[in-house]
Design a protein around this nucleic acid. Structure first.
Lengths: 247, 247
DNA sequence: CGCTTCTTTGACGAGCCTCAAACTGAGTGG
DNA sequence: CCACTCAGTTTGAGGCTCGTCAAAGAAGCG
């Protein structure tokens, strides 16, 4: 289904990665070629598969090619908190440290090994990609802080609006979806565990947004009918993506 | 007051920093000397002072010497979310990126410029300190994830317990406080803004913990009367501080 | 179809927030 | 030394937000 989607739209598999990196720093054709070269070592994962175990060392840097994943932690009594989502084009395991949370596939997904890029960067061969990776790390932290503020200081209604706006933006950058419409292959349980709510309350909040004519949701596709109104609801500010100047 | 405290206990100003780094990686005497050498360039800040502006570039790496600070963000309607606290011995602005949140002094505090250490590390002069700084960064992210889980999946009662246990541990490492007792110079408003609660509810939750004989709080000092019971309440797991192996 | 997973709905209660006001303690100045 | 102020804490009352329990629809899938 996902594969067909790509084919029909003429989206080549590495496009989300290229688009995303380009949004972080201007890349030369040579840089882009390095990225496209990654396509060789592709890896498939089934939904539910654990990409990185909590406490384990990450199996090298990778990019998401298709599908969704998340970082999460479980409590002894079964409660779950999702820390972040990984979308096509985004990186996994670039930080060389023990994983502080498990990374789990939420849908069927594909990744590519990004080791060649990291090596090229270490050789100093591609300062532009180095900047892009630095900006990527920075953006990840920004998203985590947004998540904290969302959980700590927004109501359920605001949280859902804020989260949808964030996804819209990230997916648009990757070339999936536009200003209003994007794929959303998440169950309400997953939304609940990310947003710190119960399933039931997520359901009711979504309906409230629907009844208000703000969003539409069906069969894995979200439509933001009034993005500006949504942004107003939750004081949404685009997490600025300023490319980092070389040191 | 704070100065007197240090003098009486015979705590030298750089001790918290040394202790904290030592908890992250074994340091040689030479390493410790480098750290103690920082004491020259000390800086004072009044409570409420902004150490780093949101969006601004951090004014170089620093260590907290005394006092407390926090990273926070304000919403347009005045709501505030505190992302993290900075305690004596901990670092500020080591990541070379635009600040994603403002850093604000919560009490009178002192910092030292850590640039010399960063330079020594870059020269490769001190691999042990390099490991300690890497572990420091890692630990910071771990704390942030803990914070997310706290806000998303713990009740008010659990949140407060969890937070107090975290502070106890961090302060003990810095040599301030012991297994049960530690300084807590935070108003209930600050606690509320960190834990995603209202002031009133923080107050009631603290009293619930007091009535349960779990904690004691007075004039800026917290006492955990039953640390194990507290840990049980909130599924508290020490955020393991495993020194990172050299690459 | 018949299963399972996911969504939706209702009823109810608890957790947490808001508003408001009293109380405490540490200055501060007359 | 005693008001007086101000920031912070505590208490009460009431209500909204959100969670839990339970069960009934939908929707995907073999």
């Amino acid at each position: 289904m996902q594969g067909r989607f790509s084919t029909h739209l003429g989206v080549r598999p590495m496009d989300p990665i290229v688009r995303r990196l380009r949004s972080l720093a201007p890349l030369s054709d040579a840089d882009v070629e390095i990225v496209r070269g990654l396509a060789e070592r592709r890896e498939r994962h089934a939904p539910g598969a654990q990409l990185v175990a909590e406490g384990g060392v990450s199996a090298g840097p990778r990019f998401m090619v298709s599908g969704w994943a998340c970082r999460q932690r479980l409590m002894v009594d079964g409660r779950r908190q999702i820390f972040s989502f990984m979308l096509p084009g985004e990186g996994i395991g670039f930080a060389r440290r023990p994983a502080l949370a498990a990374t789990v596939a939420l849908t069927a997904l594909e990744t590519v090994d990004a080791t060649p890029i990291l090596e090229a960067v270490r050789r100093g061969a591609t300062p532009a990609l180095a900047r892009a990776l630095a900006a990527m790390e920075c953006l990840e932290e920004a998203l985590l802080l947004d998540h904290v503020a969302r959980l700590g200081r927004l109501t359920a209604y605001e949280r859902v609006a804020h989260f949808l706006l964030e996804l819209q933006q990230r997916l648009e950058i990757a070339g999936l979806g536009d200003k209003q419409r994007f794929p959303l292959p998440l169950t309400q349980e997953i939304l609940a565990d990310a947003l710190g709510l119960s399933i039931v309350h997520v359901n009711r909040t979504l309906q409230q947004l629907r009844r208000g004519g703000l969003i539409e949701l069906r069969s894995g596709v979200a439509i933001l009918l009034q993005p500006e109104a949504l942004a107003k609801i939750c004081d949404y500010r685009t997490t600025a993506v300023q490319p980092i100047k070389a040191a």
